[in-house]
Amino acid sequence: MTLPFVKMHAHGDDFIIIDRRGQDNPITAQVARRLGNRHTGIGFNQLAVVLDCEDAAARIQFWNPDGTRLHTCGSATRGVADRLMHEAGTQAVVLRTERGLLTCTRVEGQQVSVDMGAPLLDWAAVPLAKAIDTRVLPIDGSPAACSMGNPHCTFFVEDIAAINVATVGPALEVHPLFPAKTNVHFVQVLSRSHIRLRIWERGGAVPLGSGSCCCGAVVNGIRRGLLDDTVAVECDGGTVTVQWDGQGGVILTGHVEPIMQGAAYLY
């Protein structure tokens, strides 16, 4: 069978969307791994499968390229929202993910915003292996942790160019303090409203960007008193804006762009 897809990106964070509304869902871990291979498949940071939903415009199921599932993806959520808003001729859409119902809106300049929900800050919700203050972890470099539906560990560094993310990231991803592994961020604070971010993504190596990682990094920076409530996050692939008032949902805003469409063969 052939499987139609659309590939998009958000500040370099590339993802594919497979719309299976009204159809069966053939995506398994094996299929996700094959499609995610950048040499013999399509290649992506995340795969978003769009499914029927009774209480929202659609339900989204997310996959990493290594065949593991994840609860949330800010970039792909905004990409699906962009397509469904175009389809319906609306300026807002509600989507269901494993984080719950997420409201997405189109804003000035054809950008798309999503309310990613409130961050999870308790050690058990991240999750961590033991009860500790998530603002300062007992790891060399004293990172902070939170969850945006997936775990995030944020290091604040003086010179981000001095960090070899691909070398240090893998060991931190599987640190014993993170029983479900973790995304790892390295943040250089340029001002209270502007950070430079590089990422080791759980199950996905070094991406050019990541919506949920941008959110997690800003949340941890605000909790440490380093940042204001609206922050430009500069990733390798571009810049997005993250807003958090310290209590409610985290708002992620930026451009999403189509790259290609096609059909993959499933054998």
Rank of each mutant, 00 (worst) to 15 (best):
M1T: 12
T2L: 09
L3S: 04
F5A: 03
V6T: 12
V6M: 09
K7I: 05
A10F: 04
A10N: 09
H11W: 07
D13K: 07
I16S: 02
I18F: 08
I18R: 05
D19R: 11
R20W: 00
Q23I: 06
A29E: 07
A32E: 11
A32T: 07
R33E: 02
R34G: 04
R34A: 11
L35F: 14
G36C: 00
R38S: 13
H39D: 04
G41C: 07
Q46G: 01
A48R: 03
V49R: 03
V50P: 12
L51V: 00
L51N: 14
D55F: 11
A57H: 13
A57P: 04
A57R: 12
A58Y: 04
I60L: 15
I60D: 10
Q61H: 11
F62P: 04
W63N: 06
P65M: 01
G67T: 03
R69F: 15
L70A: 14
H71M: 15
T77A: 15
D82K: 14
R83P: 02
M85R: 05
A88D: 13
G89F: 05
Q91W: 13
Q91G: 13
A92D: 12
A92M: 11
V93N: 05
L95K: 07
R99M: 14
G100F: 12
G100W: 01
L101P: 04
G109Q: 08
G109C: 13
V112D: 04
V112T: 13
S113W: 02
S113F: 01
S113M: 15
D115P: 12
D115W: 08
A118E: 09
A118N: 14
D122F: 02
V126L: 10
V126Y: 01
L128M: 08
I132Q: 05
D133G: 00
R135A: 07
R135H: 13
I139R: 00
G141C: 04
S142Q: 13
S142V: 11
P143F: 05
A144S: 15
A145Y: 02
A145L: 09
C146A: 12
M148Q: 05
N150Y: 02
P151W: 00
T154E: 10
F156M: 03
F156D: 07
V157Y: 08
I160G: 01
V165H: 10
V165A: 14
V168Q: 09
V168C: 13
A171T: 13
L172W: 11
L172P: 03
H175P: 05
L177Y: 04
F178H: 00
A180M: 12
V184A: 07
H185W: 03
Q188W: 10
I195L: 09
R196Y: 01
L197M: 10
W200Y: 12
G203Y: 14
G204T: 10
L208T: 00
G211L: 09
S212Y: 04
C215F: 13
G221T: 01
G221Q: 03
R224G: 06
L227F: 05
D228H: 08
T230C: 10
V231G: 00
V231Y: 09
D236W: 02
G237I: 03
W244G: 07
Q247A: 15
G249L: 10
V250Y: 04
L252C: 13
L252R: 13
G254F: 13
G254S: 15
H255L: 14
V256L: 14
P258F: 12
M260D: 15
Y265F: 10
L266Q: 09
L266F: 10
